[in-house]
């Protein structure tokens, strides 16, 4: 149970960062922290009842393999999509000269 609480706390830290931080780069880092929270949540759900990993040369009762199998791919995908998002941030900074979301919003408001 304590691991689920830790996962929720990590997720909340990321969420608060996304809402409060003005810089887009920091928002992205917060998104990465939220991603880590989701991974911790899935792994802790898998180990709720039993802790032994489901590899059959050990003696069971085994942890639930399904959440682990779902989340193993998402770690690499998170890395790839994060680098894509960083490239978008670079494009914004190159074109607008700022990363502050407030200033970007003002820019958009002025154009319309």
């Amino acid at each position: 149970m304590i691991y689920i609480a830790i996962a929720v706390v990590i997720f909340a830290i990321g969420g608060i960062g996304i809402i409060w931080k003005d810089n887009i780069l920091l928002k992205l880092l917060s998104l990465g922290i939220m991603n880590a929270g989701v991974v911790v949540l899935f792994v802790s759900i898998a180990g709720l009842k039993h802790r032994i990993p489901a590899i059959l040369n050990t003696n069971g009762p085994y942890a639930d393999p399904l959440p682990q199998a779902v989340i193993i791919t998402s770690i690499v995908i998170g890395f790839a999509t994060m680098s894509l998002a960083l490239v978008f941030t670079m494009l914004i900074s190159l074109k607008k000269g700022t990363l502050s979301s407030k200033k970007l919003q003002e820019d958009i408001d002025r154009e319309h």
Binding site: L56, L66, A69, I72, T73
Partner: peptide, 17 residues
């Protein structure tokens, strides 16, 4: 595959992977 996690993501859930 004796690693059941690999059996899931390359067997039962291969489409997802």
């Amino acid at each position: 595959a004796i690693n059941v996690i690999a059996a899931y993501y390359l067997g039962y859930r291969l489409f997802d992977t």
